[in-house]
Computed example of a mutant assay.
Amino acid sequence: MIRAIHYATGGAIEIRLKGGVITAIEAVPEGGADAPEELPIAAPGLVDLQINGYQGRDFNQLPLSAASVSECIRLLWAQGVTACYPTVITNDADAIEQAVAAIADACDSDPLMNGCIAGIHLEGPFISPEDGARGAHDRRHVRPPDWELFSRWQRASGGRIKIVTLSPDWPESREFIRRCAASGVIASIGHTSATSEQIREAVEAGARMSTHLGNGAHLMLPRHPNYLWEQLADDRLWCCLIADGFHLPEQFLKVALRVKGHKALLVSDAVALAGMEPGGYETPVGGRVVLTPEGRLYLAGNPLMLAGSASMLTAGVAHLTNGGLAEWPEAWNMASVRPAALMGLPSAFGLTPGAPADLVLLRRSLDGRAEIEQTFKSGVRVY
């Protein structure tokens, strides 16, 4: 039995767990619990749809071992993450195959790990080769969508690739997206130079998501139309946002939250340098990068070009809340039950009887950040 404060209602509750699920949630009568300030907050576990690594463990660093993948997932438990989609980015065909196979090995070696790794996010190599839109991805390995090649990677992953980020401006994109949709893989628009018409065609073909909208984009765009407006305006697209305070200005975040509503999601896009000391680093994808004391990560040769995020989902929740862009429970939902709902995970039911016991106990610090005290996955306390 867990006694805590409900993250959304603010009321004291008792949570009962059995067999990996929440069996009951009951309100604690006034005077029947510890003082509210002594109780932790109970909230659904975080679900990260886009994460490249953490604390020196990199899903794109070869050779990648199952042990390294598992170590990274265990470190994420301390950040309140109970499900994630390790992200493998643009690289040569063999490197991608090796990376997804190692992630699959980690899943096969441990049932708990298999539950925490809800799928793999393949970000590239089917993206735009243009500067700006390509971001920090290596242009040498960018290529048009290729279903046979993707199927090879999918076999190596044991069918675990659940999200593919691509640019719809390739002639092959529309048919590729149709095949993704038919096979249960979410095609996500990102790192694109597509026209508005190509965006619309991609959505008609089955694209369902926008990858870190507002990033992986040209520095200069036509006033209108452009691919940002088109994705914001299409109600069928879920919208992923990096709210670390560096990737997007508050004005963009505010607009995206208002127009997307319940389809606005937070992702970390964290790379292996998240949780590391500030300084210069050499990375396997992107080369030389700099991590500032404030947490901004950029390419050493181009300070204007971000090289991923060094912040976790809890930082995004705090940024939205501290900026008055969302109430804390709403911001937490954007990083937990909402991404779970998009991906069809049972944890989308959150703190309700019958839902998986994927939850965290936390306290909020003075700067608004969540300090994770305990993390439960399928009823097992993993942190």
Rank of each mutant, 00 (worst) to 15 (best):
357 A>S: 11
145 P>N: 01
196 S>V: 13
380 V>W: 11
285 V>C: 07
178 R>N: 08
105 D>K: 08
204 E>I: 12
175 E>V: 12
200 R>Y: 09
176 F>A: 02
348 A>G: 00
381 R>C: 15
208 R>A: 14
173 S>M: 01
5 I>M: 08
58 D>T: 06
356 P>D: 09
350 G>W: 01
194 A>D: 07
179 R>Y: 00
60 N>C: 13
2 I>E: 07
125 P>M: 07
15 I>C: 08
109 S>L: 12
14 E>N: 13
29 P>G: 09
136 A>I: 13
256 A>E: 05
11 G>W: 00
173 S>N: 01
132 G>F: 08
288 R>Q: 15
329 P>G: 10
54 Y>S: 02
249 P>Y: 10
332 W>S: 04
307 A>Q: 01
276 M>Q: 14
292 T>L: 11
269 D>T: 05
373 E>S: 12
50 Q>G: 09
303 P>H: 11
331 A>L: 10
362 L>K: 00
235 D>P: 04
379 G>S: 12
361 L>W: 03
30 E>L: 14
351 L>H: 09
169 D>H: 15
123 E>Q: 02
350 G>Q: 00
309 S>K: 03
258 R>K: 14
334 M>W: 06
33 A>Y: 05
318 A>W: 01
382 V>G: 07
129 P>N: 10
229 W>N: 10
381 R>G: 04
356 P>E: 08
328 W>D: 07
249 P>H: 14
361 L>V: 09
37 E>W: 09
296 R>W: 10
297 L>D: 03
246 F>Q: 10
90 T>P: 05
341 A>G: 04
367 D>V: 02
220 M>Q: 10
252 F>V: 06
112 L>Y: 09
139 R>I: 11
359 L>C: 06
221 L>Q: 13
58 D>L: 06
34 D>V: 06
310 A>L: 06
117 I>T: 08
302 N>K: 14
193 S>E: 11
383 Y>L: 12
163 I>Q: 06
184 G>I: 08
119 G>H: 03
137 H>A: 08
135 G>V: 02
220 M>G: 00
127 I>R: 01
314 T>K: 10
126 F>I: 03
158 G>L: 03
348 A>K: 07
296 R>Q: 15
352 T>G: 00
176 F>D: 04
18 K>Q: 15
330 E>K: 11
209 M>R: 12
378 S>H: 15
237 L>S: 03
219 L>R: 14
99 A>D: 04
177 I>A: 05
311 S>Q: 14
14 E>S: 13
182 A>Y: 07
158 G>K: 00
